[in-house]
Amino acid sequence: MSEPTEPVAPKDFSARSRSRADAVAAPIAGLRRSRPAAVAARREAGLRWLLRGATYGMLAVIGWILLDIFGKGLPVITWQFLTDLPRASGAAGGILPAIAGTCCLVAGAFALALPLGVASAIYLNEYAAPGRFVAWTRLAISTLAGLPPIVFGLFGLGLFVLFLQFGASLLSGCLTLACMMLPTIIVGSEEALRSVPAFLRHGSLALGATPWQTIRYNVLPYALPHMVAGALLGVARAAGETAPILFTAAAFYIPRLPQSILEQVMSLPYHLFALTTQYPEAARIRSMQYGTAVVLLTLVLGLSLVGIVLRNHFRKKLRW
């Protein structure tokens, strides 16, 4: 159990105390800065800039990557590029099947993982008494969150593709990605449930509601939008992953829209990978590669951004 701590000071504690100290110290003669203190202050300022440099330096590198991709890729994006079928093994034409394939993969995975994740979160947060089962489940969830995507790929290959004989297919890909999304959805949904204040539960129970009625009518309606927002982060991550679908779903070149859940599909991340490394004269189709990268980045960052903004909105929104 955590011990009660003292009330927490305002968040901008350091900044505030600094300015207050300056304001007080200045006019009092006996409290002027001594020489060693001045040296320390200079060192401190240097360190401050160093830390700032680390932050913005790395951000600049990431910015360089994004600028390069968008700068060279955006001019490629046309309506045709987005809505045409690919030609010549992907060297020409559009990327519609890859967009559609990725959308199908993540939508299917989301449809599988969301109910499971929300149900798990409800059980863990509203029903389960602390104990061995909860401890093991939490360990399992964090394990899932930390496993490399390629391990999910191997697992999907072993279980869905080979053992259950779904073959390399949209179905196998969805199932594999769903396993990968699950921990993000559970963690986000638990956060959403915890943000629903206790009086809604107590008030409902006091009116003679059963625990499930309470959750169903007085907790879930307020938590669900928050849950979906959090789940979008998992969806975005899954949409950008290549390794899990490498052996379970991804096809190099199928110049038509997905037809059945039992066939392979093209997908954006794999398409980018294939165009860059599997294509004989990869350097000649840079524009196709950049265009695909832009679409993939926009999709993934867009979903993430919507998820983060909505979730932070729900964190603050309610007046309780």
Binding site: I65, L233, R237, A239, G240, T242, L297, I308
Partner: peptide
């Protein structure tokens, strides 16, 4: 938080 989501295949592409 947003940047954790950058697809690694894009980073690899940039590297290449």
């Amino acid at each position: 938080e947003l940047l954790t989501a950058i697809p690694t295949v894009v980073i690899g592409f940039f590297g290449l």
